[in-house]
Write a protein that binds this DNA or RNA. Structure first.
Lengths: 342, 342
DNA sequence: TTGAAAGCGTTACCAT
DNA sequence: ATGGTAACGCTTTCAA
């Protein structure tokens, strides 16, 4: 059933039917009711492509992930962010278009996206440090919001992020307070902006206490079990191994944990571990300690905010760049053990 | 730059330019070259919506997840499947449309999708037992492939799945061989088809050895850390606690592990744990044991297969239902401990 | 308050 | 081998 057929059934023009359906004020209320009823009855729903062609809007938001960081999708956090956005999109009549963009021809890809009119706006996932995509998108005049930030980009842009630096600074301070002096950081790829910020937080905490940093204790790679396992095993074999480990993701922490087991050590006794993104931290117990960072539900919330922000921006193109820094509270559980002897 | 402008620049008709660009055989090779060159130079790329309107194809594949199982997205496996599909889509010129469909008006939603012409085909994620969506989609004549299967659906449909039953049967048998008699299953929601199959595998293994099943040892819920933690803690307080645990997901296993810690027990000594989806199992060591199930890269591969299958189906609507049962090998590492005493 | 017709950017049919 | 034109399904002037 299309508009033409529906209007014929009703003995009205396509124009009137369209207006009735789209809430234009000039149609008689009785007519509108009749049209709405018929639309429901005949199961009419407008063809999005045709609407798009006619209006120039696609009612679709693109989520772009660089193929170079596709492994990031593996992060549970990512799924939650998407789920949150999806909620808002469906409420406001938007669709979500997913694409992986190869780094080589980013500019071209975005240009095409715009040209093809496939999306009204974009969400940029997994920004790198000094991410070139932001400049391209600004230049193109395409509305977009960045999930995360990109240090080094001076132009204004909209973003939503959690306070990665502060959370890692706090986590480090907490371990220092417990008496740890050999604290390792198992970070994500430091070309990623969030990883850089986490590292900064870690470094600031150490410097403020006058603790020397040790490059051997700072590892950076994809956040997978395999990597967490490998790096931890490696560090535990040092002459002066870490007594505490900051794991940058729930997934890599699984590997950290296994490496500790394999070394015959006990977590929380021989090695303390603080894990980012661990939902279990909600289960407060005597040994919990508050750290500010992302929780699963807060990430979902971030997705919602991001979606709302972008839709606003699309409908108010004159708006300035907006941003939100979310300070969600995470509680780290008992795997954070006591200080080492001496 | 649109087709009209491009054709004017070239002094050709829109028809010819279109044909040249789309590889029709009847254009002179010299013309085609000239057109291609100009298209490149002027950065022309066709408007997808207009193409869609004209051809009736949208070159878009929809991935649908029921909102009721949105937490599934949190599973790393999910991200990998999507990443794999995405690869194939972009190769073959397809876009990926993501949507969460509320269970209430599924039928309506699909009907609309079809009517709106927003997708050429669908991938159904997270099928339930006897999933009604399959019937609806068949009836609608919309090409689709199910990621997973749905027991109880008698009509033929295309699907791709891993051998969940066999993997859990094997894992259980392995634990039985080690001497375990109190084996717990921490399963996903048993309304989900994959969870049902895993349960079946577990039960078959027990029955074949004449081991009585204990409802107390069979838990089923969302696969989160919190749930894994809660159920494990609960079971460890039984008079006759489990000596081994089968965890249905990487994420819930994190909770399992913490509960074991909190109980003052040691994994691999007091309690053996086999975890599904653990990439670390790739790291073979002396105590590894082969279990057949999904690994991360095999899931990505499944996504690729699924995408290819669907695209074929779209282009060959007469084809019968196709399906693939993937038998990827997973190796479980040292967290699988020795048999309990006695 | 309603309707006719033009227009959005393609493809596809029918000529030439 | 190329071009004219209708058609896709909607929105939006402009008229009535």
């Amino acid at each position: 059933m299309n508009l033409k057929e529906l209007s014929e059934k009703l003995g009205l023009s396509q124009t009137t039917v369209s207006r009735a359906l789209n809430g234009y004020p000039e149609v008689k209320e009785a007519t509108r009711l009749r049209v709405m009823e018929a639309a429901r009855q005949f199961n009419y729903s407008p063809n999005k492509r045709a609407m798009g062609l006619a209006t120039g809007k696609s009612m679709t938001i693109g989520h772009v992930i660089p193929t170079s960081t596709q492994h990031e999708m593996v992060n549970p956090v990512f799924g939650d962010f998407v789920a949150g956005s999806l909620e808002v999109y469906s409420q406001r009549g938007y669709d979500m278009l997913f694409s992986a963009v190869p780094d080589e021809d980013e500019a071209q890809t975005y240009r095409n996206m715009q040209r093809k009119g496939s999306v009204d706006g974009l969400v940029l996932q997994g920004p790198q440090v000094n991410d070139a995509r932001i400049g391209i998108l600004r230049e193109l005049g395409m509305p977009f919001v960045v999930h995360g930030r990109s240090s080094g980009v001076s132009d204004p842009y909209s973003w939503i992020d959690v306070n990665n630096k502060r959370s890692f600074q706090r986590a480090t301070e907490f371990l220092l307070d417990l008496g740890h002096r050999r604290i390792a950081l198992i970070n994500g790829l430091e070309s990623m902006d969030f990883a850089q910020r986490r590292r900064d937080g870690y470094l600031v905490a150490l410097h403020e206490r006058g603790i020397a940093t040790d490059p051997e204790l700072m590892r950076s790679s994809e956040m997978t079990e395999v990597y967490g396992h490998h790096e931890t095993r490696d560090m535990l074999q040092l002459d002066d191994p870490p007594t505490a480990i900051l794991a940058s993701s729930l997934i890599s922490a699984i590997g950290v944990r296994r490496a500790i087991d394999e070394a015959g050590l006990v977590m929380g006794r021989d090695v303390s571990v603080i894990t980012h993104d661990d939902e279990l931290s909600y289960l407060k117990n005597g040994q919990d300690v508050p750290i500010f960072t992302a929780t699963r539900s807060s990430v979902r919330d971030a997705g919602r905010h991001c979606a709302a922000m972008l839709i606003d921006q699309i409908n108010n193109p004159t708006d300035d760049a907006k941003f939100e820094l979310l300070e969600a509270e995470l509680v780290v559980g008992r795997s954070t053990g006591p200080a080492p002897q001496g």
